[in-house]
Design a protein around this nucleic acid. Sequence first.
DNA 1: GTCTATACTGAGATAGAC
DNA 2: GTCTATCTCAGTATAGAC
Lengths: 211, 211
Amino acid sequence: MPVTELSDPTTAEAARIRFRDRQFAAREQAIVEATHRLLAQHGYDAMSMDDIAAEVGIAKGSLYRHFPSKEALAASVMVELLERSRTALRTTPAHFSPGQRLRWLLRWTFEQRLAGSVPHLPATNSALQTALLAHKVYVDQLFALSESLGELIGQAQALGELRADLPPTFVLYSFYARACDPTLDFMRAGGTLNDDQLVEYLVSACFDGLK
Amino acid sequence: MPVTELSDPTTAEAARIRFRDRQFAAREQAIVEATHRLLAQHGYDAMSMDDIAAEVGIAKGSLYRHFPSKEALAASVMVELLERSRTALRTTPAHFSPGQRLRWLLRWTFEQRLAGSVPHLPATNSALQTALLAHKVYVDQLFALSESLGELIGQAQALGELRADLPPTFVLYSFYARACDPTLDFMRAGGTLNDDQLVEYLVSACFDGLK
DNA sequence: GTCTATACTGAGATAGAC
DNA sequence: GTCTATCTCAGTATAGAC
């Protein structure tokens, strides 16, 4: 009878542990998501651990059972974003050329930001930036993404889809910078343009220029 | 004899006052310049009033004889930058076309930043941004500059020097965004490019695009 | 007006009960 | 593991002596 097995002490114990682990993992995910929202809305400095705890609906002290510091928590958010970005890059339509892939990925990042995501790179000289550079997982993810992008850029330049007179590093950094373009925030605040049009303008301004 | 006039009590008193005023004004200028440096290097949040006082070489309390708050002090820095920008715009070579003026001004802002100036716009959602929007002088200066730029953009679009399919507001915001382009900081940190070349790349990437 | 010393606040992090 | 309560510290701003 299954009853015996269900009431078996060791099995019940194991089930309880698995359940608790799931609870713990779920809560941690909720923390990361709440932090992501606040980070996108208010930025790193303006976001306090009190705010996060309130947003999740738990006590501030409990946050520190999951993450050792505010910096580590923010790093988790950024690592998750980088992982999703790498997945997005891997899943670009197979028949796309390198140049089309880059355009496609830039469009994807704008759509993410419009949907409430945090920009990929923190503002220069911000407290967050220096904190992130100390986090190995973050730096590794960023490096991996940059490798893939650098490869695409090289191919696109060789194919004449990107200007070859610009150093690849410059193109890479510009790509990151455009992904965080504050023009998106300004225009959204203005509110006269619909989102699709805005994204097309941003992508076009990056690759085709203003002239 | 001039001696009598020099030793005249009221004249001597007036001279002392003028001297004290100059001292005061000079100190205030030193404060603004020190703040500008720290703002450019570390950003608004990371810069404390202690840092500023130490940089100037005066007591922290004395800062508050000149500026009522940290925000007001930062606003002074930004207002001064905007004033210099408007002057730069007014003094573009007379024979330049609207498009050439815009290019020229963008190049000027990059050179300013390379020389240690703070970028024109604070990071989105930063504490500084919201503080500045409450300062009337700052907002007025920014509005005046935007008016002039908007006029130039309209003319350049009419002449075919700028794409006319992009909304003028979008071009204006993009111009501001490029003036603060973090690519400049990244590349400078990398250090493989000389400054002149970097500026040309940045200007070209803005107007001509990456493609 | 400038200095030293200090009040006050907000925020990150920790301790101890349950 | 989570909660409440508290510690610690940095940072803005002010008070009072000179």
